[in-house]
Write a protein that binds this DNA or RNA. Structure first.
Lengths: 344, 344
DNA sequence: ATGAAAGCGCTAACAT
DNA sequence: ATGTTAGCGCTTTCAT
């Protein structure tokens, strides 16, 4: 509280103590070449004695290199984006790169404001969720003087780097599976204006794939954020309109799981009366009985790949890791895996 | 790729265009007083024309105020910490404060390294999970020239600010509930060396409260990270040793949920044969049948309060929000709410 | 291999 | 109300 507010030691203090110039301190601290081991050692001793840590803000200003990675995601309230962030953090470990977080809450205006604010930090990279952005956001990303990774989705026109899965592939995969296992009266339940846009892409691909097979799709979109409760409500709603359905595909696993509760409470046998299918491949979905059908979306891996892609671009494979050969190209499409669950 | 790498406009450029001095530009951009509306307008026009955004790194260096909040959490792989971060982000909105993230993976050495790295950014505040830290971490936090909030737990000796719930209270609450509802042969299942330490505190309080009632506690700790799978395994293991148990308290809801699957698969009636109790109050636990007993831990709210506490300390209630009166004191203990679930 | 000088882009402190 | 000067702490550039 009433601490004397002592300011931390600077490179000058270390230089004075070690009897060298500030620039030598700078070189030693950065591990730069051209310092004799004698001086190197003197500086190390002095720095340790004073508890010196280089001020990253000053270094960043002068070197025009902040080592900050702006990570912009739409939400933290389901496990998808935290897992992506976890993957990013994992992929960034061993570098000095640090994640600065922005949460848009699926609000494009907010996304623009956050990006603007983060870009003012002169980040070393931007990782942003999705390929669909407000024109202003696209413009800012294009103008950014750092690498940009768009993560999650590969169906579109990336600004720079991109890693994700194909939403179209997901929709087709699920349509093929449900039809192959004999379903013909198929519904789809989404939530909250289909945020993120990826869910709309999946639905459209799903509907198109069914159409190609001569089937149509009953669609119901709940006007509420995606959650178990919303899934339960959505399931009830679509069945009220179409009690004959033999399969429902949900925008994600949370909704599908909520639907499972509706079915349990109403004596609907899953998957015999009704198949339930989600998207994401959450751990829970793979444990619950009956197991739901889903598509495993590699969330952690997408984050990890985004980080590795950045490091490749930034040339920051300082520590090890260069041994693992990275894929070539600026768009990495990761595989989706169908989990048939109990629907066979 | 081969972009001309044009450097963004600076305050000088704006000043030149507006025919004023740089300091006037600075004052206008910060909304500082003592600028005539005529100049203010000129600067605004010039700034907009050039697409000028003040460089936050330079501003931070000079003003010795970064507006970065170092947020250090142990994990992103279950929903607890993402929700805390969501709360922090919410509580920080309307300020220029930005979250810089560090994930320790429950590794104290890593925690120290991350903190050291983040402190070198001269953050405006540190929010860190838990009260138990490596001595080196405690020392760094004490030496930090910014406010520090320890979040999650209030049972201990806070360094500065603190907001969380009482783990001891949680343990006692659950013991009282299980005993009141007639259980007498009680077990406890934890995971992974009881990380975070809070789970150990809860277990100890739980055991002590049972002891006061003349009951002892069968304890089993799985050596694996907390997850549904681990909960299922832990439940099986403790029942193998103690098939007579009539209640098991798990370190968290994930474990308890996994246990529920074990019970289902083995014809154990919950809660009639065996009561299952967790901790956290996850949405899912409140929907599943039978509903598990749990204690709602206000994760989002803890994050939000941490941010509000900081803003109080930093005096950054710039926009509105001052109307909501903040609690006094530097330690906020938030309430825990028992959710009896199906165990009555 | 080492250092001196200059300056990154901004804002505090001090004029006027 | 406006500007001038200085300098945050570091690293680039250019000597030596």
């Amino acid at each position: 509280m009433s601490a004397p507010e002592i300011s931390p030691p600077t490179a000058r203090d270390v230089a004075a103590r070690a009897g060298v110039s500030v620039i030598t301190v700078s070189r030693v601290m950065r591990g730069a070449p051209n310092v004799s081991s004698a001086l190197r050692e003197k500086v190390r001793v002095a720095a340790r004695a004073l508890g010196y840590r280089p001020n990253r803000v000053a270094g960043a200003l002068r070197a025009r290199e902040t080592d900050l990675v702006a990570v912009i995601v739409p939400s933290m309230s389901h496990s998808v984006f935290p897992e992506v962030i976890d993957g990013i953090d994992h992929g960034l470990s061993g570098t000095h790169l640090r994640t600065v977080l922005g949460i848009t809450h699926y609000d494009q205006a907010r996304e623009a404001a956050i990006l603007q604010d983060l870009i003012a930090w002169n980040p070393s990279a931007v990782i942003i969720s999705g390929l669909e952005h407000h024109p202003e956001v696209r413009a800012m990303l294009h103008a950014a003087s750092c690498p940009v990774v768009e993560v999650m989705d590969v169906d579109g026109d990336p600004i720079d780097l991109c890693v994700g899965t194909s939403q179209y592939e997901a929709g087709e995969l699920m349509a093929a599976h449900l039809v192959e296992t004999g379903r013909r009266r198929i519904g789809y339940v989404g939530a909250w204006g289909e945020r993120p846009d990826r869910s709309r892409k999946r639905r459209e691909a799903f509907a198109a794939a069914l159409a190609r097979r001569g089937l149509d799709l009953a669609v119901h979109i709940e006007d509420a954020p995606s959650s178990l409760i919303t899934g339960r409500a959505g399931c009830a709603a679509i069945l009220a309109a179409r009690p004959d359905l033999d399969a429902i595909h949900f925008a994600n696993d949370d909704l599908a799981l909520g639907a499972l509760f509706h079915c349990r409470e109403n004596g609907i046998e899953v998957p015999d009366d009704l198949a339930l299918a989600g998207f994401n491949g959450l751990e829970l979905v793979e444990m619950i009985t009956p197991r739901l059908t889903t598509i495993a979306n590699p969330r952690f891996e997408m984050g990890r790949c985004a980080a590795r892609m950045l490091r490749r671009r930034l040339g920051s494979f300082d520590k090890a890791a260069t041994d693992q050969p990275l894929p070539a190209g600026d768009v990495w499409r990761l595989p989706l895996v169908l989990d048939r669950g109990a629907t066979t």
